[in-house]
Design a protein around this nucleic acid. Structure first.
Length: 439
RNA sequence: GUCCCCAUCGUCUAGAGGCCUAGGACAUCGGGUUUUCAUCCCGAAAACACGGGUUCGAUUCCCGUUGGGGACGCCA
């Protein structure tokens, strides 16, 4: 029998990082076994489900490359099937009506639990059991006639012939009810695998207040889908060897549910950043250029008059220094505007030191006299000046860098100066010289 | 309150009774490379929650304690 897994989110808000990892594991397991990965929108909560949230789910899956087989099933359209199943349970005696004084007036339909202790083999947790006394009957159709989650969920999973249910461990207790429903409906229960939660960086359950909780946020912050995917896969699972950066094919090949961790995992944005850098550095320059441009536009740093050759060179110089695309706006803004921020600490150390102004002035004049403003020419000019002063080149390099970029680090100074061009370099040095405190 | 689940470096993990002097990755610290930053290379510090068993031998098995988390809806 071919494996069929499903991702069944309820579209009530942005897709959470924990949810999407569940989707990833479902997808990976289906691909690993040559099976199918299905999608079901559990949109039966009329008050909280929205079309925007549905779109958000679809976008998140698409962004991460989590392709699914068949058309998505909208649970709200399956109401008749759910109610029909309830009728069957009623007529077989597996369910009964009772007025528990709930929503609306009239009777709800309750499912009759088997009245015996239950257990099942979870692929990740092993044997899980529950005593009969802790498994009370429960409502499957409300007194207003609407089906309840447990019923809809099971009926739809049977309908979709799902063979492996991979979901969050907050569903462990529900599983006993679901298995009982499967049996009463005359269906063979699927295999279950319950995933641990992902907790925030403080080790607490995620709440709405936590940043870095929704897939869309990572996208906005300039993270790459493949990097987020790779990071998330490793959050609770490992290939069993020392590999960390894995291709999609590698993951598909060696993914095993039995190797999934049973303890909750904590989100670590620093490692995610590292992972993103790994992927970003391997990207072709055109891609980096396009993504960075989007960031620059969003930050108001982009001008359509930026020469293509100039921009390409900026990306060449910055590429390996980026961990996320948004870094281009933080550590490369001086390539695009005169209004770049100046690192106070660097300015104090390099520009306001004894004798800094004198050296800066000397090198400014030396640069001004240059006809050839190439990196090589700039370098020999600067080194000659340093020699004349009887000091190391660093005594000139650092102040110039801070004056021209406002930052303590960045691409090779001479390439940077050449790219910026004579006019801008001289203007910026002059400005640094006149800045208060630059003595 | 009742029931259930979980527990290896700060974090993610390897480890399925002797191979463990507990391995890797991120982060941290030190060194090398670089004009700087980043990359890259080398190195350091850093963990089996605690207490009982079982065993010739426990990080690995069992029980308890502690600590965390979850479920107890006519929400999904």
């Amino acid at each position: 029998m071919t494996v069929r897994t499903r991702f069944a989110p309820s579209p009530t808000g942005p897709v959470h990082i924990g949810n999407i990892r569940t989707a990833i594991y479902n997808w990976l397991y289906a691909r690993h076994t040559g099976g199918q990965f299905l999608l079901r929108l559990e949109d039966t909560d009329r008050e909280r489900s929205t079309p925007e949230a549905v779109q958000n789910v679809l976008n998140a899956l698409d962004w991460l490359g989590l392709s699914h087989e068949e058309e998505p099933l909208y649970q709200s359209q399956r109401r008749e099937a759910h109610l029909e199943a309830a009728e069957r349970l009623l007529s077989s005696g597996a369910a009964y009506k009772e007025d528990k004084g709930g929503r609306g007036q009239g009777e709800a339909v309750l499912f009759r639990m088997p009245g015996e202790d239950m257990s099942f083999q979870d692929i990740i947790r092993g044997s899980l059991r529950k005593a009969s006394k802790d498994l009370p009957d429960f409502v499957i159709v409300r007194s207003d006639g609407s089906p309840v989650f447990h019923l809809a969920n099971v009926v739809d999973d049977i309908h979709m012939t799902v063979t492996h249910i991979i979901r969050g461990d907050d569903h462990i207790e529900n599983t006993f009810r679901h298995i009982a429903l499967y049996r009463a409906l005359g269906a063979e229960p699927p295999r279950f695998a319950h995933l641990p939660m992902i907790v925030n960086e403080q080790g607490k359950p995620y709440s709405k207040r936590d940043g870095a909780a929704f897939v869309g946020e990572f996208r906005e912050q300039g993270f790459l889908p493949d990097a987020l995917f790779n990071y998330l896969v490793l959050l609770g699972w490992s290939p069993g060897d020392d590999r960390e950066v894995l291709t999609r094919d590698d993951m598909i090949e060696c993914f095993e549910l039995s190797r999934v961790q049973s303890a909750a995992a904590r989100m670590d944005v620093r490692k995610l950043l590292w992972m993103n850098g790994e992927y970003l550095r391997r990207l072709p320059p055109e891609t980096v250029a396009a993504e960075c441009r989007a960031v620059l536009e969003a930050r108001g740093l982009w001008s359509d008059s930026t020469p293509d050759t100039y921009y390409r060179r900026v990306i060449e110089l910055m590429h390996e220094r980026l961990k996320v695309f948004t870094d281009i706006a933080d550590s490369g803004s001086y390539f695009f505007t005169e209004d770049y921020p100046v690192d106070e600490k660097a300015a104090r150390k390099r520009l306001q030191k004894e004798g800094a102004a004198e050296k800066l002035k000397a090198i400014r004049d030396r640069f001004a006299a240059l006809d050839d403003f190439s990196a090589d020419a700039l370098e020999s000019a600067l080194r000659a000046t340093a020699d004349a002063f009887g000091v190391g080149a660093g005594e000139f390099i650092h102040p110039v860098r801070v004056a021209v970029s406002g930052l303590p680090g960045g691409p090779g100074l001479f390439e940077m100066l050449e790219l910026l061009g004579k006019e801008r370099v001289l203007r910026r040095i002059d400005r640094a010289l006149t800045r208060p405190g630059a003595a």
